[in-house]
Design a protein around this nucleic acid. Structure first.
Lengths: 209, 209
DNA sequence: GTCTATATTAAGATAGAC
DNA sequence: GTCTATCTTAATATAGAC
């Protein structure tokens, strides 16, 4: 593995674990047993490392949102999709944990992050609409747009929330609880004939929290 | 107004507007046209200013949660209560905007903030239960605990979310949209006879966004 | 590519005069 | 209580040897 890539990987790990603000270029170099000078040979500075990390995340996440044959997903597959999204966010969670601050200091990342969130809301809206058309969900007072926004909102802040109220919980539990939380937003809209499916899904996820 | 209080007020304003990280003790002093030395006469440092601000917030918010005769509120009064909560959070929004970072650096504040959030969830749960008992809401698959958690979650991250997707929106719109968002979480549970009330509330709030 | 040594900058904080 | 001047510390960044 090349030094450049090791820097990115080490930085990502430290940022996720300690918070971006609490990690200096010297910390990253120490963790890897290289000199700070060496790190600056590969990157102009911390800012440039963060930009590279964001570029990776943006590319991965965009692909995730586009690739899927969303309209054809079954109710069960939707949950798998949510699971995958949570995993991708978790991998780069420091962008979410320190969101306000990072997006304030790196305005270009801010713009791109915002675009990504909009894309996410759109995708989820499609997903909700496909469930409504398949008569799995009822089209009620609150439209699929509002529902999609609630789901997207949960995805955005789930990790900060867990870090706040449940800091010692492990990876699997956090993600299961997240899927459960989203499920709880959708269940009220489930049609009568699908209530049994919804209920069994709820109990499956609840057992794993 | 005493210098000590002016420092607190100026710091609060700057923290809310620029982000806590981007405001130094010198910035605060400059904004007030006093010297940094003077500021350090009144406070041991930035940390101590933040602790004082948190103490104010914690006291105000606790009182807000305890004071109210929650169980006796009508459906309409509930919305007023949400409004007041949003306003209190907005006043001290930097704790919410830079949550992860502040709570990581000031661990004592972290503990107290967490306690406050739990208290908030409990209060909202009581509120939901009272609505269920009054037959305004149905007791469905997802219990009042889960609903309360969804509402509390929305209150926690509404301002960071708005700053992200809607940075130029003004105070009133942001809070109205927040109340609408919470309303959208509750509406699916509204009993048939209350659907008309819910619907009119939704359209009232939607018009103001 | 990698190291050591060092320069630069800015925030945080204090001493002592008024 | 308030000011000016100054110190300390830590992060960021660079130069030059190997």
């Amino acid at each position: 593995m090349k030094t450049r890539d090791r820097i990115l990987l080490t930085a990502l790990t430290l940022f996720n674990e300690e918070g971006e603000q609490n990690v200096t270029t010297v910390d990253i170099a120490n963790e890897m047993d290289i000199s700070p000078g060496n790190l600056y040979y590969h990157f102009k500075g911390k800012e440039s490392i963060i930009e590279s990390l964001y570029a990776q995340f943006d590319a991965d996440f965009s692909q995730l949102l586009q690739q899927s044959e969303i309209a054809e997903m079954s109710l069960e597959n939707h949950w798998y999709f949510m699971y995958v999204i949570f995993e991708e966010i978790h991998k780069y969670r420091f962008f979410y944990l320190n969101q306000t601050d990072i997006l304030q200091r790196y305005q270009d990342i801010g713009r791109r992050f915002k675009r990504l969130v909009k894309q996410k809301v759109k995708t989820i809206e499609l997903l909700c609409k496909s469930l409504i058309e398949a008569n799995a969900l009822s089209d009620s007072l609150v439209g699929s747009q509002q529902l999609a926004e609630n789901i997207s909102f949960t995805l955005l802040y789930w990790f900060p929330y867990q870090q706040l109220i449940n800091p010692s919980a492990d990876y699997d539990k956090i993600i299961h609880a997240g899927v459960y939380q989203i499920l709880s937003l959708i269940v009220p809209y489930a049609q009568l004939e699908d209530h049994s499916i919804a209920q069994s899904l709820l109990s499956i996820y609840h057992a794993r929290i």
